[in-house]
Every structure is written in C-alpha cells, then in structure tokens.
C-alpha cells in the first residue's frame, strides 16, 4: 500500500511530500528527451545540468512555463516518472494532492489530474499554491484575521489574503524569477553585446541581483559569447546594472501585491499593518525584495522560515488531514 503524496509542481522545482514521512523528492522540473525517438533520457537534477549543453538530438525542457503547462504530453510523462521514483506503481494507488498556480485553466487542471491518475494515483486533487503556501508558512489562517502571503515562484507571482481557512482576495501575475533571469540575459546581450545562457543569468542573479541597494555589494565577472566576433568574452557586471535590468519585472510583481492589498476588505486590511505580509517561494529570496515591497506598500514584510518548502509543506498538511480539508481542493468549491 503506497503512502499518499503531496506534490508541488512548480515551474522551477518539483517537491514531493510523502504522508507520515516528509519530503522525499526535491528536484528541478526539467526533462531531457531524445528529439528523434521522444524517449526520456533524464529528469530532475540530471536533466537540469543538460540545459543549454545538449547535442542536437537531445532537448532538455521545462514543461511548465509562466505557471502554465506548455506541453501536456511531456508534463504527463514527468508526473508519471516522478510518481514512479517515489514508489507509485499500478498496484499501489495513493491519493495525491497537487499544488498548481491559481491562474491555471480548466484544460490544464484536467491535464494534471488525468496525468496523476494515469500514473497510478487513486485520487488526484488540486490546491492553489498561495493557499498551500499560507498553510506551510505557518500563518494563523484558522483565525478570523487577515493573513497575506506572497508566493514568488519561477513563472508566477501570487498574492493572497486568507482568513478562516479560505482565500478572500487573490492576485496572480505570470511573472516570476525566470523572467528576472531572462531580463538579465536580454540586458547583457543589449548593453554588452554578449550572449549568456539561462543558467549563467540565474547565477548572476543569485550572486549580485537585488531589488533595492543592499550592504556588501560586489561585482560579478560573466563569461559569454561575443555577438560580433563569436568568440568567448568576459564582462564585469555591477549590482546597479542588474537592478536596472530587472526593474520592470520587480515593478510588475510589486504592482500585483498592491492590487491584492486594494482588493482586501477593510476589516482585514488593518490586520496586515500589525501582522505584516509573508514572502515565500524561491523568487522571494532576491536580495532587497522584502525591503522594496515594504517601502512601496508601507506594510511590514517577513520572510517565511522555509520559503522553498512552504508550498509542499502546506500540501503535505492537506494530505495528512485529507478528509477534514477536502473543501479546500479546487474542484470542491466549484
């Protein structure tokens, strides 16, 4: 008998929580395929290492982009492989709770649940990422007070106001930390005339990227391909340059937080001033982002204790208390 599972199917990483056991898988949402035969060559970390470094016949792809499924068939295969890796087979049929972006379409919803069922799940339910994040961030969402959570993922940024176990206001934009990487790539190409890969852009973001000036800032040396000569070239990037490069993306995330604040009922809005907002997700780790949101909204911003695991923790809690929390699943409210 397989243990029930909770899956955070993120644009950047996929985490799996097993009932009674904890997090059993945490890997990049990447799959490498043979372009000619369609055969799966690698998944997770192994496939991630192949991004941008593959020969012509191999393609390493992220089947989710901007919080949306870009390729249903590949996503299905990835879910099936993930479940197999944690011990799900035809004979062990667990219940599965999957976290998905709140902006997911009906077609995508059905694709995810069907994929999980075909992969061996006895029952597959979906939960919105900000709801799971609020549970996982240990916010007092069982009380009649306003709790605000900002989940900045790879492809989406979702802000939600939660009270008494339900979402009161929600705002989602299809912008996330991958857009920050893309903005860095575009800036380096435009201003320095060199092409860099998405993994290099991510490294630059992690090394010197920030949303507001911070202490101990340093420069970064970046290697890429000169667009004019085609030869390898090194350039030095400063934190100010990166802040300028990613400004549009950061502004768009902050604007969505402001829109969510504006949607919140006045009774709950006053709670935020006292309790603050909670930042979760990998994108929330961008230096200076919490301070920037705080400055622009005048509401205190706190970082969750486990920002990368908050969503799967919340879904894990739902699988542990499946019957009591059935009402929270996406289909149950429609």
């Amino acid at each position: 008998m397989a243990r029930d599972l909770a899956i955070d199917l993120g644009t950047a990483n996929t985490l799996v929580y097993m009932k009674g056991k904890g997090i059993v898988l945490n890997e990049p949402s990447v799959i490498a395929l043979n372009r000619q035969t369609g055969e799966v060559l690698a998944t997770g970390r192994e496939a991630w290492q192949m991004i941008g470094r593959t020969p012509g016949y191999i393609v390493a792809v992220r089947p989710l982009r901007g919080g949306a499924i870009t390729d249903f068939e590949i996503t299905e295969r990835m879910i099936r492989l993930l479940l197999q890796r944690v011990g799900v087979s035809r004979f062990t049929r667990p219940k599965v709770v999957i976290c998905v972006p709140s902006a997911i379409t009906e077609v995508e919803r059905r694709a995810v649940t069907d994929a999980a069922r075909r992969a061996g799940a006895a029952d597959a339910q979906l939960i919105e990422q900000p709801m799971a994040a609020a549970i996982g961030a240990d916010l007092p969402i069982d009380e009649p007070v306003g709790n605000m959570v900002i989940d900045i993922g790879g492809g989406t940024s979702e802000t939600a106001v939660i009270s008494l176990g339900g979402i009161v206001a929600l705002e989602a934009v299809r912008v996330g930390s991958f857009d920050i990487d893309a903005a860095i790539q575009a800036y380096v190409r435009r201003e320095h005339g060199i092409a860099i890969g998405e993994r290099t852009a991510e490294e630059v973001k992690m090394a010197i990227g920030s949303a507001a000036p911070t202490e101990d800032e340093s420069q970064a040396e970046v290697r890429g391909r000169d667009l004019m000569t085609g030869l390898p070239k090194t350039v030095i990037l400063t934190p100010e340059e990166i802040r300028f490069a990613i400004e549009d993306v950061v502004s768009s995330i902050i604007a969505s937080v402001v829109r969510c604040l504006a949607k919140a009922p006045p009774e709950l809005a006053q709670d935020f001033l006292v309790r603050g907002m909670y930042l979760v997700g990998g994108g929330g780790l961008l230096r200076g982002l919490a301070q920037r949101i705080e400055r622009e909204t005048q509401v205190p911003v706190k970082m969750s204790n486990m920002p990368l695991e908050a969503v799967v923790l919340g879904a894990g809690h739902c699988i542990e208390h499946y019957d009591a929390l059935k009402n929270m699943f996406m289909g149950a409210r429609r």
Binding site: D142, L164, E320, H321, A324, L325, N327
Partner: peptide, 22 residues
C-alpha cells in the same frame, strides 16, 4: 473540523517532521 485541521497544533507534526529532516 476544517478549522481545527488548520490550527497551529494540527500543523506542528508536518512542520516538525520536515524541520527535523532538514
């Protein structure tokens, strides 16, 4: 039942488990 399942006490078990793992 729904609200009780979301209480900090009910959530502690999952948090402690993952924190210990980490």
């Amino acid at each position: 039942r729904h609200i009780d399942a979301l209480s900090p006490e009910a959530r502690r078990e999952v948090h402690d488990r993952v924190r210990a793992q980490r």
